[in-house]
Simulated assay, not measured.
Amino acid sequence: MKAVGLQFALAHPAVAAVIPGASEPDRIGEDRAALEASIPAEFWSELRQPGLVHPQAPP
């Protein structure tokens, strides 16, 4: 879920940065991995179908 949240926020063209606020140094690596994680297009489609994500929202 961390990957989804970070990538969703950064997908909007008005967003230049997201600061996740790592509570421990080890979390920085987790955040970086979340940014690089592959999220299938089907996942975003499933969120759009019930209206959880606006149809025109990136990604």
Rank of each mutant, 00 (worst) to 15 (best):
M1A: 13
M1R: 13
K2E: 12
K2G: 07
K2P: 00
A3D: 09
V4K: 09
V4H: 08
G5P: 01
G5T: 14
G5D: 09
G5C: 11
L6H: 03
Q7T: 10
Q7P: 02
F8L: 09
F8T: 14
L10G: 00
L10K: 03
A11R: 08
A11W: 04
A11V: 03
A11N: 05
H12G: 00
H12V: 04
P13C: 05
P13S: 12
P13H: 12
P13G: 03
P13W: 06
V15E: 03
V15D: 08
V15S: 02
A16K: 13
A16M: 10
A16C: 08
A16R: 14
A17P: 00
A17G: 02
A17H: 06
V18A: 00
V18L: 00
I19W: 07
I19G: 00
P20E: 08
P20H: 01
P20F: 03
G21V: 07
G21H: 10
A22F: 06
A22N: 06
S23Y: 05
S23R: 15
E24F: 07
E24A: 14
P25C: 05
P25S: 11
D26P: 03
D26S: 14
I28A: 03
G29K: 05
G29P: 01
G29M: 01
G29V: 12
E30G: 04
D31T: 14
D31H: 11
D31C: 02
D31A: 05
D31R: 01
R32N: 07
R32F: 07
R32T: 15
R32C: 00
A33C: 01
A33F: 05
A34D: 11
A34W: 09
A34E: 12
L35C: 06
L35D: 05
A37P: 01
A37T: 13
A37L: 02
A37Q: 12
A37N: 06
S38I: 10
I39Y: 06
I39K: 06
I39N: 06
I39P: 01
I39D: 12
I39W: 05
P40I: 09
P40H: 13
A41H: 09
A41N: 10
A41P: 01
E42L: 14
E42R: 11
E42M: 08
E42P: 01
F43W: 13
F43T: 14
W44P: 02
W44V: 08
W44C: 02
S45F: 05
E46V: 15
E46D: 15
E46A: 15
E46Y: 13
E46K: 15
L47D: 07
Q49S: 12
P50K: 15
G51K: 07
L52S: 07
L52Y: 13
L52F: 12
V53A: 03
V53F: 08
H54S: 02
H54A: 02
P55I: 09
P55E: 09
P55Y: 03
Q56I: 06
Q56P: 00
Q56F: 00
A57Y: 04
A57L: 01
A57T: 11
P58E: 10
P58Q: 09
P58H: 09
P58L: 08
P59N: 06
